[in-house]
Nucleic acid binder design. Structure first.
Length: 588
RNA sequence: GGGGGCGUAGUGUAGUGGUUAACAUGCUGGCCUGUCAAGCCAGAGAUCGCGGGUUCGAAUCCCGUCGCUCCCGCCA
């Protein structure tokens, strides 16, 4: 090794040792007759002093180095002179006095400063990702990610799970998201698909008798990006045989609790994780992935509001829609501009407008729709929303979906404005009892609300024939801070039931056979009841690290248009490559 | 596919039709033996994303286009 110890490990106890350090010049402070260098490696920073009276050669070398030069320094560790300690540095009690200094490699002035963040355009950080990754923030995030994954592996290993790799080149199935395709050279006109998840493979591993499987699995989906979505992402994919829902929830909960304690400084708000049904989540929070860090629940005001003379309310009710409200404590004095901002937010989710009613401290009411509300009705509305003097009630009248979406975003906005969010806290919860199907208006058929391998709850199986929309599934989602961070289910393990679900979602017997024949066949060779879950590693680590998007916890993420700005991928290939793959381009 | 925001020295910003495009930071040089966002002095550094148009005159107005980003659609 070119170094005897790291820049982060030295402390007062090392005083007197002669050490060799190697790393990057973080900063240099040239005082003329004395030069200080903050030497950085992955482990930390140690201050180097170059003094011409101790080593003229090292002092001369120190004069030539610049930020990001890679250097090697031999020197004696000593306590800093009294009063010169730096309490802001973990190594601030000591410094290394250079007796030798070698430049291992000089560096051009980097386009971004490593030692400080300047809120650069993200494209620039991605183009020079190897420099961005040198920064403290990214090194910290990579470390949190490593610790989280290491904990997962150790935890599951102790519980008898084994990690098994599954293919990256697999089979396309038009269900679900768009596939990334890989052309086959030896089979002209045929394609592999990159897995959207190892779902089928892990079920086949259960059929194969492995009972407890997991994988830190890369998944690929060719859909448009969001701040919490990348074209390739990582899941903890796990599956168990002979389990019921409760077994998976318990195991996952224990895993997450340990991981949080192990990987970061966050506290978990509630243990055990609160559970709510899918229907409850929508009623109370307007979303199936509620942010449980704060209360602010929605109230359904449809029946009261429907008796008002306000046409927007009565029409919504008549059309089968809802009027739902959100009490905003202490916001009765909101200005017109503040109200307009909230209305703009509501409209961004499809609401036609935002009705509101403020109960002033003196008991008087301020509301643009006051003239449509008789006094007793107004009192009823306020009572239903638990209004106290000083509160503001925001109301959206629309179909249920739009009202929920608008109030969900308003709820988040009010929580920020009212500072109800503790940044050191993460709030996990379970959403359970999902409907097995959602009605697809456009295609006039049932879609699986999770995926087509999800088992219906046993007592609802008879409803598959009579009322598919009422069938509840054994699906469960893990949510955290308003993100879906994992989803799973008990799976179907019988061919007949699987075929029934396939036919209900409009899959013909022939295409079911073509796409899933291997799985259907396997079901007939002794398939144990099984189930599992797939927590999203990127989103979890993002929340543990307190980052606003998953790119900050991925070493080499893609841009929103799915490009790699550093390597410049995707890129063109040679005509020869295309010919081998039997591909002709049509770029019209 | 659609909507919003952003694009000006290496970096972050200011600059809403009129001299030589400003400030901070970084960079280069000089001075400086206890700095740690070191300090002081001097200096270099911008075809204002790109293309077209309007105008006597465009960083600024208009059209197009590219890139980054946020959102909708999409994401079993």
């Amino acid at each position: 090794m070119l170094k005897t110890c790291s820049c982060g490990e030295l402390s007062a106890q090392d005083a007197g040792r002669t050490v060799t350090l190697a790393g990057w010049v973080n900063r240099r402070r040239d005082l003329g007759g004395l030069i200080f260098i903050d030497l950085r490696d992955r482990d930390g920073i140690t201050q180097i002093v170059a003094n011409p009276e101790i080593s003229p050669a090292a002092f001369a070398a120190a004069g030539t180095v610049r930020p990001e030069y890679v250097i090697r320094v031999k020197g004696k560790v000593r306590l800093r002179p009294a009063g010169m300690e730096n309490p802001d540095m973990s190594t601030g009690e000591i410094e290394a006095v250079a007796s030798q200094m070698t430049v291992l490699n000089p560096a051009k002035t980097p386009p971004i400063l490593i030692s400080r963040e300047e809120n650069e355009e993200e494209g620039l950080r991605l183009r020079y990702r190897y420099l961005d990754l040198r920064r403290e923030r990214m090194q910290r995030n990579m470390l949190i990610r490593h610790r989280a994954v290491k904990f997962i592996r150790d935890f599951l290993d102790e519980r008898g799970f084994i990690e098994i790799e599954t293919p990256i080149l697999f089979k396309s199935t038009p269900e679900g998201a768009r596939d990334y395709l890989v052309p086959s050279r030896v089979h002209p006109g045929k394609f592999y698909a990159l897995p959207q998840s190892p779902q089928q493979l892990k079920q086949l591993l259960m059929i194969a008798g492995y009972e407890r499987y997991f994988q830190i699995a890369r998944c690929f989906r060719d859909e448009d990006q969001r701040s919490d979505r990348q074209p390739e992402f990582t899941q903890l994919d796990l599956e168990m045989s002979f389990v019921e829902r409760e077994d998976i929830l318990q195991l996952t909960e224990e895993l997450i609790i340990g991981m949080v304690a192990h990987a970061c400084e966050k506290r978990i708000k509630s243990v055990p994780f609160p559970r709510l049904s899918h229907a409850d989540a929508l009623d109370r929070y307007g979303t199936d992935r509620p942010d449980l860090r704060y209360d602010l629940e929605l109230v359904d005001l449809t029946t009261i509001a429907g008796r008002s003379r306000f046409r927007v309310f009565t029409r919504a009710q008549a059309a089968g829609g809802v009027v739902k409200g959100l009490r905003s404590p202490g916001c009765a004095d909101y200005s017109r501009k503040q109200m307009t901002d909230l209305e703009t937010l509501a409209k961004s989710k499809g609401a036609k407008g935002l009705a509101w009613l403020a109960l002033r401290q003196d008991g008087s009411v301020r509301s643009p729709i006051a003239k449509f509300l008789a006094e007793p009705l107004m009192a009823e509305l306020m009572a239903a929303a638990d209004m106290e003097p000083g509160d503001l009630l925001l109301m959206v009248a629309a179909d249920r979906e739009v009202a929920n979406a608008a109030l969900d975003v308003l709820r988040g906005e009010m929580a920020r404005r009212l500072r109800l969010i503790d940044p050191d806290e993460v709030a996990f919860g379970w959403v359970i009892d999902f409907p097995l199907f959602e009605w697809n208006e456009k295609e006039a058929r049932w879609d699986p609300s999770h995926h087509l391998f999800t088992a219906p709850q046993v007592h609802d199986i008879p409803l598959l024939d009579s009322d598919p929309g009422a069938v509840m599934s054994d699906q469960y989602d893990l949510v955290c801070n308003g993100y879906e961070v994992g989803g799973g289910s008990i799976r179907i393990h019988q061919r007949q039931l699987q075929e029934k679900v396939m036919s209900l979602i409009g899959l013909s017997a022939s295409s079911a056979q073509e796409q899933f024949g291997h799985l259907l066949e396997a079901f007939e060779f002794g398939t144990p009841p099984h189930g599992g879950i797939a927590p999203g590693i990127d989103r979890l680590v993002m929340l543990l690290a307190g980052e606003p998007n998953i790119r900050e916890v991925i070493a080499f993420p893609k841009s929103q248009s799915a490009t790699d700005l550093m390597a410049n991928a995707p890129s063109t290939v040679t005509p020869e490559q295309l010919k081998e793959l039997h591909i002709k381009l049509d770029l019209t």
